[in-house]
Amino acid sequence: MRETIELRVEESEAWRLFRDDEGVVLPSGTVRKVTLPTDDERVSRVREIDRTLRQQGQLFFAGWRILRHYSARELKSAELLKLGMAAVFEPSGEECGTEYDEATACTLCGAGARQVTDLSLDVRRIPQRADLARTLSHEWVISARLADLWQEHGITGADFRPIRGAGARAEPVKEWYQLVVTAPPLDILPATLTGNDPFDLDEDNAQRCPKGHVVGLNVLSELSLRRSDYDGSDLTWTRQQLGMRSGVLRPHPLLLMSPKLHGLLVELKVKRLDIEVAHLA
């Protein structure tokens, strides 16, 4: 596995660490996208510069992303994989009339609000070339085409629920389903690194639920999961959640898949997925 980190650096501050010809200046001319191997000696300098500038009320970098590149063999030998969806859209279900019972949510972290109606969405806003996508609030949708193929191939751990268009009397749509997980969840083990970003591990636990529902804003390492929780389903998920309740954003579990499901998604050329190896221990 080769690991790189992508940073969105303020162009006016990029000189502090990067050569003029490093990275790509984005169209506005004010942000530079730089990708470094995570073992590059300058990665630790990012932390120092970021701290110094923050103290002056300034940004060095804002956005970041860790990219893990695997060989075909590494992917093939994985026992379980993380299934991330890069096709994201809004408005979210809540904005389209989907009801949640907030009384079931944790008063500290907001996780666990139960969806009590069918998912309502403006389906025209779902990225049409994706077969798997999610709303900003992490409601997962699957194309009817892909759902049929999953059923044909006997994919376990998943269920498909109707999606209605926005509006009180909207009928279920034919092209999409809400993807729900029926498999029991897996514990995220402490070996998994979580935090605000790779340079800020949230040492004062501001983004972690004291009751353990939310383990941080982001997972920063590969996932390490409790083996004894895994029942062998092709689709499953984590018990603990990531993220924050804020506006329409909600804490959310992470989706996991078996090598069989991964193989099927590769064979079917399903696009815009963010796949990583997860470890059972």
């Binding site: 969105r8 984005l26 169209p27 506005s28 004010t30 942000v31 923050r54 940004l59 804002a62 956005g63 992303r65 890069a86 994201v88 900003l136 605000n196 800020d200 949230d202 501001a206 983004q207 804003l217 982001n218 990531l242 993220g243 924050m244 804020s246 954003l249």
Partner: peptide
């Protein structure tokens, strides 16, 4: 450009 769409939200600070 600074914060990609769909990335988890930034912490408050």
């Amino acid at each position: 450009e600074r914060w990609a769409y769909g990335q988890e939200r930034p912490p408050p600070e």
